[in-house]
């Protein structure tokens, strides 16, 4: 029996497709998420909008919170480690967390190197803004991708930009001649072998979810329409007036993202969504998507 193989790690993400992964900060929220139909929960100490508000250094969550969430639900539990923080990642792996997010939402521990994710038994999800970044993370062993978007803003514009960019670059690559790929690898800063594989298969070798700014059911459906395999919802759910209702609405809009009458129905009277921040109002050094490379 072989554990930690690419097939097992990537396959785990395949099982999440068409689903919603929700940020939670305690057992009670985790249960609400599971009840609403989330395919997994991300156990955190603070949701991204609170991290943004609090400032300072954001680290891995208190293991106690992660443990509490793991004991509360039967769906998979994910947790975030800082970019390049080998020990936070190993600690979460040792605790039995099902999936790690090497995440720009936390303050990076290493500004030069990401984790060598192929060395771990636990699978990783990583953020990306374009195909170069996506391919570098796959090269390091990420088993799942997500757009970076701009977390904790309730503003979908960056997630849309990143999803469109990655997919447009994949389409371009797939139609290239073989002798053009090395130059594309150089231009993108992407591993040549990963690009070859994408060209051969006609798609990314791992699933790509949308994340970073999804605040309404229509936002979730929009990301599915643009080709996301599923969505992460961070601050949106538990910052809303009625989290259980809101969570259910996001799940349904993701499943039936082209059923507009249904989305209209389930968007009714959801209460005030999170306020949202315009990206230009965030100083460049405060933008989480600029973390990592």
């Amino acid at each position: 029996m072989n554990t930690g193989t690419d097939r097992v790690k990537r396959g785990m993400a395949e099982m999440q497709k068409g689903g919603v992964i929700m940020d939670v900060v305690n057992a009670e929220q985790a249960k609400i998420a599971e009840e609403a139909g989330a395919v997994a929960v991300m156990a955190l100490e603070r949701v991204p909008s609170d991290i943004r508000a609090a400032g300072g250094v954001a680290r891995m969550a208190d293991p106690r919170i992660v443990e509490e969430v793991m004991n509360a639900v039967t769906i998979p539990v994910m947790a975030k480690a800082r970019i390049g923080h080998i020990v936070e990642a190993r600690v979460l792996e040792a605790m039995g967390v099902d999936y790690l997010d090497e995440s720009e939402v936390l303050t990076p521990a290493d500004e030069e190197y990401h984790l060598l994710k192929s060395e771990y038994t636990v699978p990783f999800v990583c953020g990306c803004r374009d195909l170069g970044e996506a391919a570098r993370r796959i090269g390091e062993g990420a088993s799942m991708l997500r757009t970076k978007g701009e977390p904790g803003t309730g503003n979908i514009v960056e997630a849309v930009r990143h999803m469109r960019k990655v997919n447009a670059q994949v389409r371009k690559l797939v139609h290239m001649n073989d002798d053009e790929i090395m130059t594309e690898a150089k231009l993108l800063g992407a591993p040549f072998e990963v690009l070859l594989q994408i060209k051969k298969e006609g798609k990314l070798p791992v699933v790509n979810f949308a994340a970073g700014g999804i605040a309404t059911p229509a936002d979730a459906a929009l990301m599915m329409e643009l080709g996301a395999d599923g969505v992460f919802v961070g601050s949106g759910i538990f910052k809303s007036d009625n989290p259980a209702k809101f969570a259910r609405a996001i799940v349904e809009a993701t499943t039936h993202y082209q059923d507009y009458k249904l989305i209209a129905e389930l968007s009714k009277e959801l209460g005030e969504p999170m306020k949202g921040i315009e990206i230009s109002k965030i100083a460049p050094e405060q933008r989480m998507q600029e973390r990592g490379w």
């Binding site: 029996m1 554990t3 790690k9 785990m12 039967t74 998979p76 039995g96 099902d98």
Partner: peptide, 14 residues
């Protein structure tokens, strides 16, 4: 029985 082989890190090929 659900999840009877353990959590994700115990997932395997055979």
């Amino acid at each position: 029985e659900r999840n009877s082989f353990g959590r994700q890190k115990e997932s395997f090929e055979a």
